[in-house]
């Protein structure tokens, strides 16, 4: 959560120095999300996760990843969006309890964002979403909503 911790104080002392951060942009539904690249181990494209019957709903299934079996978190289900049939991309993240995959519609490019454009979560966001989001960057014509990988760890989601 390095970049996040960097952003928060920035937000409080806004007029200070400009800090740049690298963020991987992903698309889920209509929205652009960002994940700090420091958390990403690898991006796996076109994966078809194997469903796990009886698993908690947020589990998107299993994928074979470097000799291991990786549990994925289906972002569409976490965000309560409708399911999508097409192949999806996976961000492999390293969490406190081991690696896990984040299932997104597609992975875009890596963007360099500036702390100048950062805003914290708006107050009208529902409580559940506020957990998963860590503010947003105002880009040209669109918002890049930052995801909070710590809160998307399967262990954490399961506890909720």
């Amino acid at each position: 959560m390095q970049s996040l911790n960097q952003h928060r104080p920035m937000h409080l002392q806004q007029e200070k120095k400009e800090v740049l951060a690298e963020v991987c942009s992903v698309q889920i539904g209509e929205t652009y999300f960002g994940v700090p690249i420091t958390h990403i181990l690898e991006i796996v494209g076109g994966a078809q996760p194997k469903p796990v019957p009886l698993a908690p709903t947020f589990v998107g299934g299993l994928v074979h990843y470097r000799g291991d079996v990786l549990t994925t978190v289906a972002m569409r289900r976490v965000l309560q969006m409708s399911e999508q049939q097409a192949a999806q991309d996976i961000l492999v993240l390293e969490g406190e309890h081991g690696c896990y995959g984040l299932l997104v519609d597609s992975v875009g490019e890596v963007l360099t964002v500036s702390s100048k454009d950062y805003e914290a979560n708006p107050s009208i966001l529902d409580a559940r979403r506020r957990e998963f989001f860590a503010g947003a960057y105002k880009l040209d014509g669109k918002l890049l909503v930052m995801l909070n990988p710590e809160h998307l760890d399967p262990m954490r989601l399961d506890a909720e």
Binding site: V52, V59, L62, H64, V69, L70, T71, D158
Partner: peptide, 22 residues
């Protein structure tokens, strides 16, 4: 398996089959 899936209770693990399927 990850702890989340192990706690379902009816799976002891996963494997990759000859067909490449999980």
């Amino acid at each position: 398996l990850s702890t989340v899936l192990k706690s379902i209770g009816i799976y002891t693990g996963a494997t990759v089959l000859g067909s490449g399927d999980l």
